[in-house]
Design a protein around this nucleic acid. Structure first.
Length: 605
DNA sequence: CTTAGGG
DNA sequence: CCCTAAG
């Protein structure tokens, strides 16, 4: 199938409505086979795409389809670009999967189009979007199979007719009644990002999409009522839960998505946290609020690959060229002429044993010091080696030691951890640290030039320094009580994450964090099991604290995201059931957390 | 390594 | 979120 693609291009959502509604209107869909690449100008004009743009899209397609068939890709793109397709986007992907499974990938391309036709209108219907309903009601969609659920959520129904496994999509989140401000809240909660877009419709779409896209199960169980997310009918809710479990849609979906880019090695997908499977969302969502991240991220994805450990260790080819600038030899490392601010510029070092290691200049205690060049800050803790290393310090400075440990630890990464550790173990490297830094330190201390407090201060700034140059986009420094800056690997929890967490707990039970992480957070590499646990703890706290009329909350804590009441309710529920039936080893797996289990087990108490 | 709990 | 203790 030819790669026919329509692309929407917008900033801040202007011009978006026209294009999207145009694309999804029945008229257009009636002739869906070929979309031309166009760009939507600010005024809503459609401008033919330039060759470059087309190429870019082509690249994008190439990138992802290594294993998927063209059909699937095209479908994904279509689903993506047809903005109204929110819930159907997922459905489409899945249906494409189904097609592939049925080994009709080629032949079914046409049928697929027919299906697109069916799904689009229906999905728009499910959005319950006033503006869209105009089309939806005219019924481009053949009568929804049946008893799927309520009338509105027929997107799943229609497609479920094609693939029996689609019992997952059962409802949508209705954002209709929310005000712009509330929509902004939800948006923020959903994407952990502010938006300035004032367009209600656009916001609603973005949110719906974000939720349906990445929160497979959970979102489907909530709907909004009176400005709040509300769980769908209680009975239905519990039924849903069970149904979802057996199918474990989250896993399945993730699977599908991951197939897209089998080439991505762990670190890669991590660096662009919006990994392979998230590309769709990346494309649409990132467009909002004029985030320039999008372009850079997309392109860098292709151009700049962080050197792998292998690369660092094995490529000594051009080390000669750099040898001139080998200011990194232990001798020079400590010289003060080096800029205090460290640069990410990698420098190749020749260790005493002849091996080379790439390091980057870092300022430690005011001295230039080379640390193993790692691209990402990891939360992983410093190895014991570091402690040992730190112990070299003769004068026992309690807190300083800790700070040093931290400062060093900052540079060990998960992916490149091995090399970091390896290097740290080497005596030569130890010397590098020790010589310039501790030597200076000792000297200073000896001359009583530096008071203890100054030392601490120095180190603290050092810490901030070294973290500053780090390319981790999500690292924030927070002011610490003492006035210094402490780095924080903080990533706001999005609504979808919270929902996933809740689902995970309901599935696996609280406490089985690693399992939950494996299941629900497979694609969120930055959330550790500990994080999950912490978040859950917070959720519990939040859920049991009486929920004050949101005004109070808003005025008091404008920063923290408000967790929808239904979720809190669920948390409470789970907390209760978990408390009563702690990890029931034998049967817990599939029963803990579901209402049924509560019923069956409550009898024991 | 994973969990649990304190900070 | 970070750290640490404990299984």
């Amino acid at each position: 199938m030819e790669t026919v693609v329509g692309v929407e291009w917008n900033d801040e959502g202007n011009g978006f409505e026209k294009s999207s509604s145009a694309l999804s209107s029945p008229k257009q869909i009636a002739d869906p086979v070929i979309y031309k690449l166009v760009r939507v100008e600010g005024d809503g004009r459609l401008v033919p795409a330039t060759d470059d743009e087309i190429m870019e899209v082509g690249d994008f397609l190439e990138d992802d389809k290594s294993e998927m068939h063209d059909v699937a890709d095209t479908v994904q793109i279509l689903g993506c670009m047809c903005d109204e397709g929110l819930s159907s986007e997922k459905t489409l992907i899945e249906s494409s999967e189904g097609l592939l499974k049925s080994k009709n990938s080629e032949a079914d391309a046409c049928k697929l189009n027919a299906r697109l036709e069916e799904c689009f209108p229906s999905s728009t219907l499910s959005l319950k979007d006033d503006h869209i309903n105009q089309f939806g009601d005219t019924g481009g969609c053949p009568k929804p199979p049946d008893k799927m659920m309520e009338s509105g959520s027929s997107a799943a129904a229609v497609c479920a007719g094609l693939n029996p496994d689609f019992s997952k999509l059962k409802g949508e989140i209705c954002l209709d009644k929310l005000s712009i401000r509330e929509l902004h809240e939800v948006f923020k909660a959903t994407f952990a990002r502010e938006t300035t877009v004032k367009d209600k419709l656009w916001l609603k779409r973005r949110i719906s999409m974000g939720l349906t896209n990445s929160c497979d199960i959970s979102t489907t169980m909530f709907t909004t009522k009176d400005n709040k997310l509300v769980k769908k009918g209680d009975d239905e809710g519990s039924k849903d839960v069970d149904g979802s479990f057996t199918h474990d849609p989250s896993v399945g979906t993730i699977d599908v998505n991951c197939k897209g880019s089998p080439r991505s090695h762990g670190s890669q997908s991590e660096d662009h946290q919006i990994g392979s499977g998230k590309k769709l969302r990346n494309h649409n969502v990132e467009l909002d609020s004029g985030s320039e991240q999008l372009h850079t991220e997309q392109r860098t994805a292709k151009r700049i690959r962080k050197p792998t450990k292998r690369y660092i260790e094995l490529s000594e080819v051009d080390s000669r060229d750099n040898s001139q600038r080998l200011m990194s030899s232990p001798k020079n490392a400590g010289l003060g002429q080096i800029a205090p601010r460290s640069f990410a510029m990698p420098v190749r070092n020749v260790l005493s044993d002849g091996r080379t290691v790439v390091t980057r200049l870092d300022s430690l205690g005011g001295s230039g010091v080379h640390v193993p060049y790692v691209s990402r800050v990891r939360r992983s803790r410093p190895r014991k080696n570091v402690m040992a290393l730190v112990k070299f310090n003769p004068s026992g400075m309690g807190m300083t030691t800790k700070l040093v440990k931290k400062a060093l630890g900052v540079h060990s990464s998960q992916t490149d951890e091995d090399i970091g550790t390896k290097v740290l173990k080497r005596k030569s490297f130890v010397d590098q640290i020790r010589q310039p830094y501790f030597a200076k330190l000792e000297k200073d201390m000896h001359h009583s030039v530096m008071s203890r407090s100054e030392l601490g201060e120095n180190l603290r700034t050092t810490q901030a320094d070294s973290s500053g140059d780090n390319s981790d986009d999500n690292v924030v420094t927070v002011p610490t009580a003492k006035g210094g800056m402490r780095r924080k690997h903080h990533r706001a929890w999005t609504l979808v994450e919270v929902m996933k967490l809740v689902e995970g707990v309901s599935k696996c039970g609280a406490g089985r964090w690693s399992d939950i992480k494996r299941l629900a957070f497979a694609s969120y590499s930055y959330r550790t099991s500990v994080d999950l646990k912490d978040k859950w703890r917070n959720l519990l706290k939040a859920s049991f604290a009486q929920a004050p009329p949101d005004d109070v909350m808003n005025s008091r804590k404008p920063t923290s995201m408000l967790i929808p009441e239904p979720i809190l309710e669920r948390v409470r529920e789970l907390a209760e059931t978990n408390a009563r039936v702690p990890p029931n080893l034998s049967t817990s797996k599939s029963t803990v957390g579901s209402r049924n289990s509560q019923d069956t087990t409550s009898g024991y108490l």
